[in-house]
């Protein structure tokens, strides 16, 4: 768990610091932050044993709304 947070910090805050110093637009840094936090959530869901699986969500919606083919 702590290893994950450590890698997350290294992967997001270090580059963000570099971007800020290099003078990137605000939007880019924010998008970078959002994407890597999304990554963190996915990895957290794996570690906490109920993985976020987009395919099961798709399967659930397809079964409920449109039952296309057998």
């Amino acid at each position: 768990m702590t290893m994950l947070v450590l890698i997350y910090a290294a992967v997001t805050f270090l580059p963000m610091h570099v971007f800020a110093r290099r003078g990137y637009e605000k939007g880019e840094i924010i998008l970078f932050f959002i994407l890597s936090t999304l990554g963190l959530f996915v990895w957290l869901s794996i570690l906490l044993k109920h993985p976020f699986s987009p395919d099961t969500i798709v399967a659930w919606t397809i079964d409920r709304f449109f039952d296309l083919l057998p």
Binding site: I7, A10, V11, L14, P15
Partner: peptide
Amino acid sequence: PPAIWKLPVVVILASF
């Protein structure tokens, strides 16, 4: 583009 991918790459590779 400035070599922005270099820094974190080193972190990942090192951990590998």
